Lab assay of single mutants.
Amino acid sequence: GKMTGIVKWFNADKGFAFITPDDGSKDVFVHFSAIQNDGYKSLDEGQKVSFTIESGAKGPAAGNVTSL
């Protein structure tokens, strides 16, 4: 299901971020390909987002990341 959280930090050079979920679970890795914005895919620290949890090769990662 959809979860919500806050972007903890975003590394534009490497194209990934971490989200701190609102439910208090541990921070979730985000690859820029999961960001659903049109055009430039970036996130801002402190931004509120919704996302799903996908199981990636290196463990859980956020999918369908959308700005709220």
Rank of each mutant, 00 (worst) to 15 (best):
G56S: 09
F32S: 04
S55I: 13
A61Q: 15
T4D: 02
D27G: 09
G5F: 02
P60V: 07
F51C: 02
N37P: 11
S55F: 10
K8D: 00
K8Q: 06
D44M: 14
F16V: 14
K58Q: 15
F32A: 05
S33A: 09
S33I: 04
A12M: 12
P21D: 01
D44H: 14
G59I: 09
F29T: 05
G46S: 02
T66G: 15
K14A: 05
T66N: 15
I6G: 01
V28K: 04
G24L: 02
K58D: 15
K8T: 04
N37Y: 13
K8G: 02
T20C: 10
N37S: 10
K26C: 15
P60N: 07
A61S: 11
S67N: 15
D13Y: 09
V7M: 02
N64Q: 08
D38N: 11
L43W: 10
P60F: 03
S33P: 03
D27W: 06
Y40D: 08
P21V: 04
E54I: 08
F18N: 03
F32T: 04
G56D: 14
A62W: 05
F29N: 02
V7K: 00
F10R: 06
P21C: 04
G39H: 12
G15N: 06
S42T: 11
M3H: 07
V30R: 01
G5A: 01
F32D: 01
V30W: 15
V7W: 02
A57F: 12
T66P: 15
I19F: 01
T20D: 01
F29M: 14
E45A: 13
F10K: 08
M3F: 07
P60K: 05
Q47S: 10
F16Y: 13
V65R: 03
D23P: 01
N11L: 07
V65I: 11
T52Q: 08
E54C: 15
D22W: 03
V30E: 00
A62E: 12
N11E: 04
S25C: 05
E54Q: 05
T52H: 07
P60W: 01
V28P: 00
D22A: 06
F16S: 02
S42V: 11
D13E: 13
G46F: 04
I35T: 03
G1H: 10
Y40W: 14
V28D: 00
L43E: 01
A62D: 13
V49L: 02
S33H: 08
K8W: 03
D27I: 06
V7Q: 00
K26T: 08
I19C: 01
V7E: 00
W9K: 04
K41V: 11
S67D: 15
N11F: 08
F16C: 15
G1K: 12
F51L: 02
S25N: 04
S50I: 13
K26H: 08
I19M: 01
T4A: 04
K2L: 13
G1S: 11
T52K: 06
E45K: 12
K41G: 10
F51D: 00
I35C: 09
G24N: 04
G59W: 09
F51P: 00
H31E: 10
A61F: 14
S50P: 01
K14L: 10
L43S: 01
L43A: 02
K8P: 00
H31I: 09
I6M: 05
D13R: 09
L43G: 01
I35V: 06
P21F: 04
I53C: 14
D13K: 10
H31T: 07
I6F: 07
G63F: 03
F16P: 00
G15E: 08
S25V: 02
K8I: 09
P60E: 12
G1F: 12
A17M: 09
S42K: 10
F32C: 10
V28T: 04
A12H: 09
S25Y: 03
K8E: 01
A34D: 11
I35F: 14
A34N: 11
I6Y: 07
K8L: 08
K26I: 08
K26N: 07
T66D: 15
Q36I: 13
Q36N: 11
D23T: 03
D23Y: 03
A12P: 12
D23E: 03
K2H: 09
S67Y: 02
G46E: 01
I6K: 06
D38M: 12
Q47L: 09
G24R: 02
Q36D: 11
E45P: 13
H31G: 05
T66K: 05
K14G: 05
D22N: 04
F51A: 00
K41E: 10
T20R: 11
N64R: 04
D23R: 02
V65W: 01
T4S: 06
V65Q: 07
L68Q: 15
S55E: 13
N64K: 05
L68T: 15
I35L: 09
A17R: 00
G46V: 02
Y40I: 10
D38Y: 11
K14Y: 09
D44N: 13
D38F: 13
T20H: 06
S42M: 11
F29W: 11
S50N: 05
F29Y: 11
V30H: 01
V28S: 02
V28I: 13
S67L: 05
K14C: 15
P60L: 06
F32V: 07
V28N: 00
T66F: 00
Q47H: 07
G59V: 11
A34L: 12
Q47F: 06
Y40M: 09
L43R: 01
I53Q: 06
G39D: 09
G15C: 15
A34C: 15
W9H: 04
W9Q: 02
Q47V: 09
D44S: 13
F18L: 10
D13S: 11
I19E: 00
G63V: 14
F16M: 13
D27A: 10
G39C: 14
F10S: 11
M3R: 09
V49W: 01
S50Y: 11
T4G: 03
I6L: 04
N64W: 06
E45N: 11
H31P: 14
V7G: 01
M3V: 07
F29H: 05
N37L: 12
G1E: 09
G56N: 07
L68P: 15
L43T: 02
P21S: 02
F16I: 14
K2N: 08
Q36R: 06
F29A: 04
S33M: 04
K8S: 04
S33T: 08
G63Y: 02
G63E: 11
A61W: 08
S55G: 13
G15D: 03
K58I: 14
K2G: 06
E54L: 06
E45I: 13
G59Q: 12
G5H: 01
G5W: 01
S55P: 12
W9S: 05
K48E: 05
D44V: 13
F29C: 15
T66V: 14
F29S: 04
D23C: 05
G39W: 08
V7A: 00
N37G: 13
N37D: 11
L43M: 07
S67M: 05
S33F: 07
A61C: 15
F18C: 14
G24P: 01
F29I: 13
A34Y: 13
S42C: 15
F51K: 00
A17K: 00
V49Y: 02
E45G: 06
S50T: 13
A57H: 12
N37E: 08
F18E: 02
F51W: 11
A17Q: 00
P21W: 03
D44L: 14
F10Q: 02
G59A: 10
K41C: 15
